[in-house]
Design a binder for these strands. Structure first.
Length: 84
DNA sequence: ATAATGACGTGAT
DNA sequence: AATCACGCCATTA
């Protein structure tokens, strides 16, 4: 069972409209903890959920994060998420 | 419980 | 514009 923060993050990221991108800082803010951008990434990395389109999650500059750190496996998860 | 780490953010150099 | 440093919060060891 994960902390409430991770659950919020999962819900928020999973609620990102298709084509939209949300920054870690924004997510953290919606999660109830502004400035916890790092924590958000930490939650995903540690407890990543296949239903969470992390590729829609970007940095404050709009630059893509290290979401593909997993490699092909991660890419497959992204494709699956985009299929829906 | 404490220390260290990290898929970040902003400011300073 | 690029790089360095510090701060923020949550998770892991």
């Amino acid at each position: 069972m994960q902390s409430a923060f991770s659950k919020k993050v999962r819900a928020i990221v999973g609620a990102i409209p298709k084509g939209e991108t949300l920054s870690y800082g924004e997510i953290a803010r919606r999660a109830g903890s502004a400035g916890a951008a790092r924590a958000v990434g930490r939650v995903m990395a540690a407890n990543f959920d296949p239903a969470i389109p992390c590729h829609r999650v970007v940095r404050a500059d709009g630059a893509p994060g290290d979401y593909n750190r997993g490699g092909a496996e991660r890419k497959r998860a992204i494709l699956r998420a985009e299929q829906t």
